[in-house]
Design a protein around this nucleic acid. Structure first.
Length: 553
RNA sequence: GCCCUUGUAGCUCAGUGGAUAGAGCAGUAGUUUCCGAAACUAAAGGCCGGCAGUUCAAGUCUGCCCAAGGGCACCA
């Protein structure tokens, strides 16, 4: 609806000679008596022109030129709001629009010709995915979907490091477990990976090689094998949730010299040094963040000569700019929250446009069973695994639960609720609405020979739909494209979940109040149209969220 | 001690400086000769953590305080 209203309001303002710096905003008043849509632009502009807001609003209204049969009434209300009331016919034409555009309904062109990169998951292959990573993974996947829907060319990237110290420890952990398989006594340090999966990898190696690797202290072979197996398991888990990546970026490439013999990491050091933001002391190279008002400088190259994680992080982000992305989105968990400010500062110093970088941080997940919060521990490796959660509640519930709260909220994952087959469970409620429509259409086809594809000439029947529950449902359909834009702007798929829930609710009410197959033929057809359009929007929304549209339940 | 996030109905949560603060769930009272009741309707439920401030207008912005979670390495 933004696309419908904004140009009209814009033109009215200039034709009425009203100027304002403020962006025009269109909102849906909570109370329908204040109209279907409302804008406070007169209030905002009044301040700038030092005018009475209500007077100003009254002056603007005659300049609002809407196409015929669309806006029924325009009113000034309250302190100076301009409220718009749509005609029922215009609202019901949303049904026609939805059916004509089908799977494309809701797609937009904000990102046309632009490239976006969305980075998510990015877990190093040191162990199976945890539930916390899962939330970030689903969030990232949905955000990537939203960008695609708005016409961006999207790259979904996974950044990982298979060369660092943690990976050495991983290799060492496997080696020790392997020696145990060979019947040797070992001491397994606390600092090493405790999980059962380490033992499983060791056992597999023992099956393949017998005790032959026991004499070697070289851990490379253990590390390699562990990486291979763990990465495979990570990808299998992601696959179960339909989380895809089309690019895997190995941090190691940033250490490797390019054509000119200089590694990306080194370039960052060189460039920052030119800007006088690098100093060497205590045997290490420091990024002088104290010059930016921070308490401490940050180490970029340790005294051992190895880069700290910050250096490759900066170099990595530079590659995102160099690879020509217009929008750079990073999705990560709250535990990485302190990472990005330094990266951003460094990029700013180096002259990159950091406004193009958007960060989506998701808060932690706790799981509750019977109201009891399970304390998760990676060490114990118990209730923490994403795979176990998917086994328990299924992929659809896992995905939807991860994004049905704002990403900034700590998520309370109620396992029992996720399994319930009733309206309390939002996953169920959404899918039920879809299945119910499918069932209705199947029956319509049987009993009345209803064929959706043959009705193209009968859109005028929609004007028969005038009852509140019909009009409200139609109105909701109209809202879907704006909802995508809002979700995208806020990097918040939760908005979409909320919208779809209310859409499902409106459908259930309509279904309850309006007989469909028993209505007289023309009304029956019009209502089937409405149901069909609702199903289409549910499907389109489900696709963005990665939830399956079940035909029966 | 410092930084980030959160605090809104019994519970889980929406709320983009605007109108009488909204949903869902639970609880209460209703609704099946009838397309999926796996659903729907209605009433009820509030000191928006607290105190000050900015504004014509504050749940929303600012400051301080309280509480919960997370982060504060030459780990990633």
């Amino acid at each position: 609806m933004l696309e419908f209203f904004l140009p009209v309001i814009q033109r009215a303002l200039s034709s009425a000679g009203v100027t304002t710096e403020k962006p025009i905003r269109l909102e849906q008043p909570a109370d329908k008596k204040f109209g279907d849509y409302s804008t406070n632009i007169a209030l905002l502009a009044a301040k700038e022109c030092k005018r009475n807001p209500r007077e100003l609003a009254r002056e603007i209204i005659p300049h609002l030129m809407f196409p015929p049969d669309t806006v029924e009434k325009i009113e000034v209300a309250g302190a100076g709001f301009i409220n718009f009331y749509l005609t029922p016919l215009f609202i019901m034409r949303s049904v026609e629009l939805v059916l004509q555009e089908g799977d494309n309904y809701g797609t937009g062109s904000i990102g046309k010709g632009q490239k976006a990169i969305v980075e998510y998951v990015s877990a190093n292959p040191t162990g199976p995915l945890t539930i916390g990573r899962g939330r970030g993974g689903v969030l990232g996947d949905c955000i990537a979907n939203l960008f695609e829907t708005e016409g961006y060319e999207v790259t979904r990237e996974y950044y990982f490091n298979d060369a660092g110290r943690q990976m050495q420890i991983l290799g060492e952990s496997v080696r020790l477990r392997y020696l145990e398989c060979c019947g040797r006594e070992t001491e397994f340090p606390d600092t090493h990976y405790q999980g059962e999966y380490i033992r499983e990898i060791a056992e597999e190696m023992f099956r393949e090689h017998g005790a032959a690797l026991g004499e070697s202290t070289e851990i490379q072979i253990f590390k390699k094998k562990a990486e291979e197996i763990i990465f495979k398991s990570i990808r299998t888990t992601l696959d179960r949730l339909s989380i895809r990546h089309d690019s895997f970026f190995n941090e190691h490439t940033l250490y490797t010299p390019d054509n000119e013999g200089i590694a990306a990491n080194q370039r960052v050091i060189d460039e920052l040094r030119k800007k006088e933001f690098i100093t060497e002391y205590d045997g290490a190279f420091w990024f002088l963040t104290t010059k930016l008002g921070q308490e401490k400088d940050k180490v970029l190259i340790k005294s051992s000569g190895e880069p700290s994680y910050r250096l490759p992080d900066i170099a990595y982000h530079i590659t995102k700019f160099e690879r020509g992305y217009d929008i750079i989105v990073n999705v990560f968990g709250a535990d990485h929250i302190d990472e990005y400010p330094d990266v951003i500062e460094a990029l700013k110093i180096l002259g990159y446009d950091t406004d193009r970088i958007k960060i989506a941080i998701n808060q932690f997940v706790t799981t509750t069973v019977d109201g009891q919060t399970l304390k998760m521990s990676t060490r114990k490796g118990n209730a923490d695994l994403l795979d176990d959660l998917i086994d328990d509640v299924g992929a659809d519930a896992t995905r939807l639960f991860f994004i049905m709260r704002g990403k900034d909220s700590h998520l309370n994952f109620d396992i029992e609720l996720a399994k319930k087959q009733s309206k309390e469970n939002p996953v169920f409620y959404l899918q039920y609405a879809h299945a119910r429509i499918c069932s209705l259409l199947r029956m319509a086809q049987q009993e009345t020979g209803f064929n959706p594809s043959e009705l193209a000439a009968e859109y005028q029947l929609l004007r028969l739909l005038r009852s509140p529950s019909e009009v409200q449902l139609g109105f909701a359909l109209l809202d879907y494209p704006d909802m995508i834009k809002t979700s995208l702007r806020l990097l918040e798929p939760q908005k979409m979940v909320e919208y779809l829930h209310s859409l499902a609710e409106l459908f259930h009410r309509f279904y309850q109040e309006c007989p469909i197959l028993k209505a007289e033929p023309d009304i029956c057809k019009a209502r089937l149209y409405l149901a069909l359009a609702t199903r289409q929007v549910l499907r389109n929304g489900f696709r963005i969220l990665g939830v399956s549209a079940l035909e029966t339940m």
